[in-house]
Structures are given as C-alpha cells and as structure tokens.
C-alpha cells in the first residue's frame, strides 16, 4: 500500500526543532547516527514531479461547473473523471496525459508484487507491525515475508493474512475474520486472533509451535492437522518422518518465549543446533567437530545469561567439552580426560 517516497528535490534541511529536542534524550553517538540517517534520507533521488498545468486546467473547469457557495460532492472513484462530461479535445488530451502515468502504474504494480521482507540481525530482537495491526517479534536471524497489505494483487481484498517465516518469531495477532496464517518450510499455523510462538529452522528439520493465548490450528505434511490451546505445543517434522508430528503436549511457554526478554532456552535440540542458536543470538562463530553431535540432544534454560561464554561454559561443563576463544568466536572440542 505504500510506495517509497522521496523529496522532489534533494535537500539538506536540518532536523526540525521539535525532533532535535526529542533526540537530546539519546546518547551522543546514537544522536549523531540518527542525524546522519536524516541527512541520508535527503540524498534520495527525486521522483519526476507531476504535470500541474493540465491538472490546473481540469480543476479550473470543475470550479466553473460549481455554482458559487454550492457544495458539490465530487466522485471519488478512479473510474469517474470529474463533474463535467469530457469533450473530445479534453479526452484526447487526457489520453496523452495518462500515457506516462500508465507506465508509472505498471512499475508501481510490479513493485507491489514484491513481498515485504523483515529480518532480525545478529543479536537483535525485532518487533514489527503487520498491516492488520498484529505484531510479530523476530528472534535473531529470523526472516518474515508477507505481501503488502496481505493482498495478492494491488487493490484486491486479502482473504487471508499470510506470512512466511524462517527462524523464530512470536506473534500477537489481532482478531479479524480473515485467518492469520504463518507458513514455515513444512507447516502452517492458522489462527483467528491469539498469541503464540513459532520456531522453524529448516536445518532443525521441524517446526515448533507454543501457544501463549487462544487457540491455533497447525497443519503439516501428510495431511497432518491438529489444534492447540494455551500452554500446549507441538513439533512438526519434515515430510516423510513418522509420525509427522508429536501429539499436542504441555510446554513451558515461558521458556519457549524466554528469548523475547533476553533469556536463552533450548529444548531437545542437537548440539549443532544449539551452537547455531548461539551464533544467531550473539553474532559469533562457533566451530566444532561433527563427531560431537553423536552425544544427543540438549535441553538448557538460562533466564538472564550475560554472554555467549556463560552459556557455552554451562553447556560444555554438562557435556564434558571444552572451548577456547577464537578471533571470530569460539571453538569447541572434547575435554581432555
């Protein structure tokens, strides 16, 4: 629904005084950055300005058609063009006048078709608003994609509110008659309005859902379908696993969503997946020989870890492993006996 807008002319305006005053509350480094963002916005290439002459002629004609003091109700549909019947000359002029805008419409249409992509960077927890007012909070490294306004094509109603998730996110969904659907690489979570956590990393080969409020419907490969309610969770495996999913089971939703408040929690994850989670969360690189993975799944919960090292330390102690710092993170290996 929105098109990236730009100034008609590149411009060096300083921050408006109200905004400048508000930024005084920020740390100097942050403030300097934000001012720089403001300046950068002024460098955007300007769009071509529209034709005012022809537009004025049209308006002047409409003004004449309206009696002084009378209130007219101009039609608002794009298909109707003004209160007066166009003459042949005006129509021809209009055809010319709109040849260029048709090109713009085509370009805008093509732009419209591209989904909106949202990504949380390393160590970032990113909260975003969706077009219906729902919010999604993305854990580090997660990506969320959806069509603008949820609509398949410009100007058509969206029948559903669909988003595509890779990674982990918490959704707080506004009630609406259109179903809200989270699509992962192997499963779909459908809700009408509720709050729940979805975790879907393809290399963990499963999608996990935990429900914090309300009720969701989860569907997956091999016609798998079930419903979950508060405090329940499920894991949906990739196609051709058997069974395709666990039964709904009670889950510690607080732990499943601990990441939203800085906690670190993993449940029944292979070691490499835990390292991947640390990498996304802290922006570090963790190398480890693959034979360590045979050790089995990890369950770990820290409500307020201070660093990657703290977590790694706990993990290694529990597993008889050791680690050392590297230039880009850590290297893990079996502890010497």
């Amino acid at each position: 629904m929105r098109r990236p807008l730009s100034p008609l002319m590149p411009d060096r305006s300083p921050l408006p005084p109200d905004l400048s005053a508000a930024l005084d509350a920020e740390a100097p480094e942050t403030r300097a950055d934000l001012e720089q963002v403001w300046t950068l916005l002024g460098t955007l290439e300007s769009d071509a300005p529209s034709e005012s002459d022809r537009a004025w002629e049209r308006l002047a004609a409409q003004m004449k058609a309206v009696a002084p003091g009378a209130v007219s109700s101009p039609t608002r549909r794009a298909s109707d063009r003004g209160a007066i019947a166009p003459t042949r000359t005006t129509r021809r002029r209009r055809a010319l006048a709109y040849a260029l805008p048709l090109v713009i419409i085509a370009v805008v249409g093509a732009w419209w078709m591209q989904p909106v992509h949202l990504t949380a960077g390393a160590g970032e927890v990113l909260s975003v608003s969706l077009p219906d007012g729902s919010t999604a909070t993305l854990n580090s490294g997660a990506t969320l994609a959806h069509r603008r306004g949820f609509a398949r094509l410009p100007f058509l109603a969206a029948e559903t509110r669909a988003v595509r998730l890779e990674g982990e996110a918490f959704f707080d969904v506004e009630s609406d008659e259109r179903p809200f659907i989270v699509e992962t690489f192997n499963a779909q979570v459908t809700v009408l309005g509720t709050a729940f956590n979805v975790r879907a990393h393809p290399n963990e080969a499963e999608t996990r859902v935990a429900v914090s409020e309300g009720r969701v419907r989860v569907t997956g490969p091999d016609d798998f379908a079930t419903e979950l309610t508060i405090g329940q969770g499920i894991s949906v495996g990739a196609a051709a696993t058997s069974p395709p999913a666990s039964s709904p089971e009670p889950v510690e939703v607080e732990q499943a969503t601990a990441w939203r408040t800085g906690g670190f929690a993993v449940r029944d994850l292979p070691l490499r997946a835990v390292f991947d989670e640390l990498e996304r969360r802290y922006g570090v690189e963790i190398t480890a020989p693959t034979r360590l993975e045979a050790d089995g799944d990890v369950t770990l919960y820290l409500s307020a870890p201070s660093s990657a090292e703290e977590i790694l330390n706990d993990l290694c102690t529990a597993r008889g492993l050791t680690y050392r710092a590297t230039s880009r993170g850590f290297a893990v290996s079996r502890a010497a006996r």
């Binding site: 098109r3 537009a55 409409q62 805008p101």
Partner: peptide, 18 residues
C-alpha cells in the same frame, strides 16, 4: 506524490488531490 504513496496509482492520486 503523497497520495500516490498511499493509493498506489498516480492517476487515482491526481483525482483525489483534485
């Protein structure tokens, strides 16, 4: 330009501004 950013079409935006 502002209206086109909202409705997605410059022709329609022109009508609205009129």
């Amino acid at each position: 330009r502002f209206a086109a950013g909202l409705v997605g079409s410059e022709a329609e935006a022109d009508d609205l501004v009129q």
